[in-house]
């Protein structure tokens, strides 16, 4: 293995199935590749306390999207040069090299770290840990679509597991616009064909939307429809998340 690393290419087929194999633009009645209804999310699996070395952690699996989030702190930050009488939040999202179908594509998602930060900061009671920093680190093990919403929901569980005070849990879901239809919790393939997308993050107890990210063109009625679908799904997700926190892994002192 001496000398420079040789260039390599993946033998996987690069030509995607053409869109028309799944649905045509005028179709209103087609079937998703995994058989789900348009407004049906993938089954969500959560586990808290996945990483022993962290103050709090969670693992989430939504179909083929698998994510681990670790929370450290509140702890001292060597970076902090200025005194602050409220706490700081620091987020980072990274991908394994094998998360994406083609090796190393995960580095295309550099903006996820700041989006995660914006999604969480409204929910954390920063006044309860002045001068210190809470670090939230996410690692996407496998990318199966809707990666960022899964990371956000998983991060909120990890924060709760770490005992960081929050106003509420944070749940997140996204919707893809495919032709005439709005499809919730899209998989990777559906995301690649989408005409537009909407990602909604909320604090479910009070239906408070903390973050809304939209791409593509959305008419007002379509936007309202998209938001309503997301809010309903977030409420269901929140129930699952709360059950997980109260479940057998919940770390209560005896």
């Amino acid at each position: 293995m001496a000398g420079a690393t040789p260039t390599t290419y993946s033998p996987s087929p690069t030509t995607r199935k053409t869109k028309s194999l799944i649905f045509r633009n005028d179709d209103v009645d087609w079937v998703r590749t995994d058989g789900r209804d348009f407004h049906q999310c993938r089954p969500a699996f959560f586990k808290i306390g996945a990483v022993n070395a962290a103050a709090g952690s969670a693992y989430a699996e939504f179909g083929n999207t698998k994510v681990i989030v670790s929370v450290f702190g509140p702890r001292e930050s060597k970076k902090a040069m200025l005194y602050s009488d409220i706490g700081r939040l620091n987020c980072n999202v990274s991908y394994t090299t094998f998360a994406t179908p083609v090796r190393g594509q995960g580095s295309d998602h550099k903006e996820f770290s700041s989006m995660l930060h914006k999604a969480l900061e409204g929910a954390i009671i920063l006044e309860t840990f002045p001068k210190t920093t809470v670090d939230v680190f996410a690692l996407v093990l496998e990318s199966g679509g809707s990666d960022l919403p899964v990371v956000i929901s998983c991060a909120s569980l990890a924060l709760a597991d770490a005992g960081i005070m929050m106003y509420d849990l944070v749940a997140s879901v996204s919707v893809s616009c495919l032709g005439k239809n709005l499809v919730i919790d899209p998989v990777l393939e559906e995301e690649s064909y989408q005409d537009g997308s909407l990602m909604l993050t909320c604090m479910p107890s009070r239906y408070e939307v903390t973050q809304l990210t939209i791409t593509g063109e959305w008419s007002t009625p379509k936007l309202n429809e998209g938001m309503q679908i997301c809010l309903d799904a977030c409420a269901k997700l929140a129930t699952i998340m709360r059950e997980c926190l109260k479940g057998p892994d919940s770390a209560l002192e005896e």
Partner: peptide
Amino acid sequence: TGHKAHGAI
């Protein structure tokens, strides 16, 4: 109360 003693500063 009763959560493992995290978040202590």
